[in-house]
Every structure is written in C-alpha cells, then in structure tokens.
Write a protein that binds this DNA or RNA. Sequence first.
RNA 1: CGGGGCGUAGCGCAGUCCGGUAGCGCACCUGCUUUGGGAGCAGGGGGUCCCCGGUUCGAAUCCGGGCGCCCCGACCA
Length: 500
Amino acid sequence: MGDDRKLTPRAEDFSNWYNEVVLRAELAEHSPVRGSMIIRPWGYTLWENMQRALDDKFKATGHQNAYFPLFIPLSFIAREAKHVEGFAKEMALVTHTRLIANPDGEGLIPDPASKLEEPLVVRPTSETIIYDAYSRWVQSYRDLPILLNQWANVVRWEMRTRLFLRTSEFLWQEGHTAHATSEEAERETLTIVGVYRSFMEDWMAMPVITGQKTESERFPGADRTYALEALMQDNKALQAGTSHMLGQNFSRQFDLKFQAESGDWEYAWNTSWGVSTRLVGGLIMTHGDDSGVVMPPKLAPYQVVVTPIWKTEDQKTVVLEKAEFVASTLRGERVRVHVDQRDNMSPGAKFWDWERKGVPLRVEIGPKDVEKQQLVLARRVTAEGQDRKEFLGEVAALAAIPERLLEIQRTLLETARRRQRENTHRVTDYGEFTRMLDERGGFFFAGWCGSAECETRVKEETKATIRVLPDEEFRSETPPERCLVCEGEATHEAVWARAY
RNA sequence: CGGGGCGUAGCGCAGUCCGGUAGCGCACCUGCUUUGGGAGCAGGGGGUCCCCGGUUCGAAUCCGGGCGCCCCGACCA
C-alpha cells in the first residue's frame, strides 16, 4: 500500500479506512477473544467525556444512577415472549462455577459437579432483572415514577463484529423507568429522544433524523421504538440511539403493579432507552478524514496540544517554559491541554501524530515565537476560506483559543449537516430509488403503504431498510401520496437507507 | 454457518512454488549530529516461524490433522 504512514483513503475503501483509523489513532484494538475489543486510553477518555455529558443530562431530567447485576437467571429472560425471541440467538451463558484438571488429558474443564441448576445469562440488556426489582419496590402510585439509569457492559454474541460499531461485549447506558400512566411513559421516551438528540448534535456535532421504528425493527418486547439515525460519510445510516415505550409488557410478566389513587391495582408503564460505545464509531465516521480522526472540541480528550520546537538546549528551556505557561493559563480557562515534551520525535512527526488522533487545535511554540511574543495556532479542520494556521500575539492567541474551539465545534456540525442534506433524497419511483441507492446511497424519503410485504421486498431486493418513520419536523411539506414499492396509498412517509 | 485471505521480532511484511545458517522496513536501546510538517549516520538487542503429528540426513518451506484471527454474505445497538 505504499507509504504505511498514510491511511487508506476513504474514497478507496471506507471500511479499511475505518479500521485503520481506529487502530492507528490508538482508540481501540482487537482483544484475544473474538468479537471483543480493548478500548485504549485515548478511546476510553473520549467515552468518559461522552458519559459525563450524557450523565449530566440524565440527572438534569430527574434520573438517578443505579447498578443491577451482570448475571440474569435464564428464566427471567424467558418470561417475555418477544423478548426471548429477540435475544435467544445471541446469549452467553454461565453454566458452571468451578474448573478441574481434565481427567482425560491436559488443561482444565468445567467441573460437572459444579453445574448450576439454572444457567445464568450474561445480560444482553437488563429489562427483566430491573423490572423484577421494581415490582418489589412499588406498591402505590406514590412510589412512581421510578427514573433510573445504569452504566454497564452487556454481551450479545454477534457473528460479525467491528470495533465500536458491533462487538460482542460493549459499554452503554440503559435507562429504565416505570410510570403510573401510559401518557407519562410516552412523554418520557420522547424526553429521552430529545436528550439524545441534543447530545448528538451539540456535543458530537452529529446531526440525526428522529422518528419511530416500524414493527420489524422494533425492540423485542416494546410497543413502540423511537430511534435516532445519523448518516455516515459512506452514505450508510447508523442507528445512534433508541428509546422504547414498553407499555405494560414487562410489568405484566414481572408483576409490577401499583395501587392507583382510585384504589384499583394497575400495571405500571415502562420505558427503556440506551446509547452505546457505538457512538464512538459514529463520531469517527461522521468527522474523520484521510488524515485520521477528528474530535469535536467538546468531547476531545485533549482540546489543545502544545508542540514545543527547539534546536539548542537553551532554546529548549525557554520554549518549554513558555509552553507550560501557555498550558497552565489555558487550564485556568478549563481547556483540556497537553504539552508534548517528547524529545525523540521531530515537531513534524508530532503534528501528524496528534492530527491522526483528532486533536482539534495545536499550538506551536518555537524560539522565534518566544522572541516575538506570539503563538502559532493550527486547526485540525477549517471552514471554507479559513487558513489552517494563524500567527497571533501571545495575549490575543490565549484569548482566542476558547473561541476557536467553539468555532471548530460549529464548523463540524455545519459540515456534517450539509453532507447529510446533500445526501438526503426524495423519491417516488422505485427504479430511481434503487439506482440512486446503488450509485450514491444516502437517506431516501418516500411514501410507504404500511405493509410489511413492501418493507420486506425492499430489504430483500436492495438491502435497504426503513430507518425511521420520521418525526413531523423532518417530514416533507407535502406528504407523499403513493407507496414507493406497491404504489398503493401511502399512509406514512418513511426514510429508507442501507444501514450499519 | 457458507465464501475468501492470513498466521514468521512490538507493528507491517518478504521468504513457502523449488527443503540447506531466519530476513527487510518501522519501532526499541547506545552514541553523535539534528528538530518551524513524518530526521540522519554508526553500532546494538530482540524469534517456541500458530499448535500437534508425519516424511527427510535436514522442515518456516512438503504431507495430514487441529486452532486462531481478519475480510465478504445470512442476524443485530
């Protein structure tokens, strides 16, 4: 592949580019166990920053964190029919609790005597164990609502995996709530969609379309699933988050009842909602370029890296002193800043290194700058017509940096929005749809008659699925009249796309 | 589970067809010179060649069996 310092360009092979970016930016790598990954500090710090922002939003909307166990009795999963059906094919089970030396050879084997009476499932999601607990916590309407979230790992035994996008074990948050009325639960699911959307747009700079999933794409056990869909640079859709109205499906199975004001016993209404480390993949595929990752400033582990440049020992002393001064000044402004003091790397090599890792802003300080009392600012991405580098007096530069970070954040969102807009199409003709889907991909808005047959046919013929039935704000001004597929009367507008 | 590819130094690979002292680049260590966009020179360290078995005087290489990983398809956040 020629120069192995360079990444495969996105246009040449997007999925290779993605893998190389993740590995070379040291975000994550494959672990010895198939389908699971090691999240390295650079990637994990990004995730921690995402967690913090989301967690603050959950708290601000009245939620608390709790922790429920990793192991779930198999019988719990089996209680909700659709839920079992949905997860049965991808469960990891604990069946034994002890190892013994293999009597027939080498190594260790599970001790047959330690076999569990009831196997434990490694949670693929926690509805069952949580609603079981809620059923013990709730007696009266006064105990409602319960608004909890947990940060946890879950396991779904996937066949095909990709770093961050789909791994057998992943990190996520799962919110689980219980309410006295259907209306209140419904409101909760929509509140969360709003929380997710503002996080994705304001923090990740990743625009999304929100809407409702069709029955075939619904969470197993939910009455309704709301989702947020983003469009990646290869014009495939990514389901970035989901929020489920569970109705009374789980409360009936787990006997989650309460006595209402009227004195009647009623089943509670539940919601669940989650986003995962998949968002890291979404961030990479939204903003990354042929040089590597691009981190939105609000989430970047380091927002600024100061690169000192020197020739002589005397210069090194002076330059490093200035670099530390700049860093501590910025830290006072709550800028996350790092001084790259490595002396076994040339400045140029450091530039490439931090660009590959996506640091939004670089400050260069050399002897000339110290002398002229100036700093060089270099941004990771530029808006149209912007210069990549700026030479500013030290005081002006220090004052400008927080602004520059905000500008970069804005530029990223604008660029991503424009790309999403340019790759969103409205179609009425099925032939045109399949042609455009193959030629360029993207989001396709079109009418749908509501039948599973038409939905399935599109999936089989084109591999595209209905990502969402979009919320009102995303819908076309004049609703489509005919179904894209059968040309019958359209009852919905749908967004079709090939998806991750 | 089907199709393809790969397993040799920390990483990326060559060597395998045609058996004969295990190599290259990067990284690492030491020294000197360097440092404003991927530094240079010199010296140095590092290997159960995925595993098990077979053939052979001799196996990274040939034969048999196994394991693992990656990529592409059917399921999924």
